[in-house]
Amino acid sequence: MEKNIILAGVGGQGILSIAFVIDHAAMDAGYHFKQAEVHGMAQRGGAVQSNLRYADREIFSDLIPAGKADLVLSVEPLEALRYRQYLRPGGWVVTSTTPFVNIPDYPESDTLLGKLAALEHVIMVDTAHLARAAGNRRAQNMVAVGAASPMLDFEETRLLAFVERLFARKGEKLVAVNQRAFRLGRAAGLFFRHSVAAGLAKLDSLRLLRKLDPDSIDPAQAEAWAAAIEDDAALLDRVLGSEGTVACDDVPLVA
């Protein structure tokens, strides 16, 4: 077993907090791991990445070779595209769709989301939306790692234990917010993946997820939603046009 992850984002978005959670889970599980990160000048609002590797055998290079990355986990949609040449065939991109715009030539949102949706193996989550629902917009990094967590080789409870350790110093409230963000991200990521596997278009799944009550998102309903939308072409527009949020388990009713 060997897992190679490129964590991507913009300086200040908290990718090293994601690394903290995975590093500790890897050590806890008895794996070898190495995690290279960026310090110094590049942290000042620039593109940052961290190469995180864990395996059940010795790891040599701190950097992931091109063609060996299993996962690009990005807290920012433009940054998700920056490292895709490292992905092995079959590798995944898990990305936030919340843009961090601090450059003049930032691409149009539709163009960017279209490029991401064109990737074969991609999970897209609206991290700002879910982090707000969890209680703090800064918890987007935990939404992202939650969305990627089913691809990691650790129990959800172990990962949540290290989210707790990471924020313990900052008080119970922040621990709860960040754990909630993780859970919302995990549910949304799974829902996205299952609905897309069942035939729903990626950008439609993303739109639907924004409309669902975040706490109600249940990956087990993803197939039913995909099937209902396939059966009734106007369903998605009706759902998106309805008042307020929609409960995930309302799918039979709407249908």
Binding site: R88, P89, G91
Partner: peptide, 8 residues
């Protein structure tokens, strides 16, 4: 090594 995609 083979890769999933080229650099953007």
């Amino acid at each position: 090594l083979p890769t999933a995609c080229d650099a953007a």
